[in-house]
């Protein structure tokens, strides 16, 4: 019992003692989660550095450890979503055409597909990756519309926000299967179904993994609070951005593969107010057009998922 981390106690303080005990037992299993691939964390750290301190050679060297990732990266760079007409010949030329930051995010995306060797996908892996990649794209695009400085960080936050579902698949697979079943038969949001059937949700398990990986605080916040940005302790605008992008994806055919019987009023969501407070440009945003533009990307995102994640989830 002493080994239960403090964050876990804080997280579960609102739950009944018997539930907490049950979860505590399972927490031990989180310790057996896969370690993050060698390239991922250094890359993430590079993303946090000011751009003038990042050396192109470092990125190229990192990627050269893993040919698969480098190859996937080049294919992804040539997708219309990233704007290159044909695949660059090397990571170096990709950086020249797209810029270092964009290439870093592409590399991180490719890494993600190779992190998890989930054997029993409770959730449809294609839906999962489409949603994560879609949310990443929307986060970046949303940032651009707001003229926010860090679209790349937003991209990564979008990519990682639902990582708890993967933890659920690996450590709570039976319970999570029941939650999925509940969500799709009742047509309710997945997080609601998790709380109703398991008593905790992917935000909690995702946080556990993110802490184990020692991700930066803003990523922890996005993972833990993307359903309730108003509760986050820091990085609220980023968390709010992920929250809205997540909802938008789920309303525009990039959800979890079932009908969510709900109405979403983005501009009157507390997250919208948080963003409006930070970015004046939000007031001028044409939300309808933004949604139509997202539709355009759906086919492309599906294609990218096949390129990047196709092999890993067929295992």
């Amino acid at each position: 019992m002493e080994t239960v981390p403090r964050w876990w106690q804080a997280m579960t303080s609102s739950l009944a003692p018997s539930t907490v005990n049950h979860i505590r037992e399972r927490v031990k299993q989180i310790e057996t989660l896969p370690t993050i691939p060698a390239v991922f964390l250094p890359l993430l750290n590079l993303l946090n550095l000011p751009i003038d301190q990042v050396k192109l050679e470092e990125v190229v060297k990192l990627v050269s450890y893993d040919n698969t990732i480098a190859a996937q990266c080049l294919r992804m760079a040539s997708s219309p979503l990233f704007g290159l007409a044909r695949a660059p010949e090397s990571i170096k030329s990709a950086v020249i055409s797209l810029g270092l930051r964009k290439v870093e995010t592409i590399l991180l995306t490719c890494c993600m597909g190779n992190v998890f060797s989930v054997k029993d996908w409770t959730i449809d892996p294609t839906n999962y990756w489409r949603h994560s990649l879609g949310c990443a794209m929307v986060c970046r695009k949303f940032s651009e519309k707001l003229a926010a400085s860090d679209g790349d960080k937003a991209y990564i936050a979008g990519l990682l926000h639902d990582i708890g579902f993967l933890v659920n698949c690996m450590t709570f697979s039976k319970e999570f299967a029941a939650a999925m079943e509940h969500a799709s038969t009742q047509q309710v949001p997945l997080e609601e179904a998790e709380l109703a059937t398991m008593g905790f949700c992917h935000c909690d398990t995702g946080l556990a993994l993110a802490q184990k990986w020692r991700l930066a605080d803003d990523m922890l916040q996005a993972i833990a609070y993307h359903h309730h940005p108003e509760r986050s302790h820091s990085a609220q605008p980023l968390v709010a951005l992920v929250h809205l992008s997540d909802l938008l994806c789920r309303m525009r055919n990039l959800g979890y593969g079932y009908y969510e019987r709900r109405r979403v009023d983005l501009a009157h969501d507390p997250a919208w107010a948080i963003l409006a407070n930070e970015y004046q440009a939000l007031e001028q945003m044409d939300l309808a057009r933004f949604s139509f533009e997202l539709d355009e990307a759906v086919g492309e995102i599906a294609a990218l998922v096949d390129i990047i994640f196709g092999t890993s989830h067929k295992e």
């Binding site: 525009r252 055919n253 983005l266 309808a288």
Partner: peptide, 22 residues
């Protein structure tokens, strides 16, 4: 089709795959 922000009394709301003004 969009209302082009011509009316701020309606709330633009999303349903799965559909937009409406509430």
């Amino acid at each position: 089709e969009s209302l082009l922000n011509l009316n701020d009394k309606f709330h633009l709301v999303h349903f799965p795959g559909a937009i409406a003004h509430w």
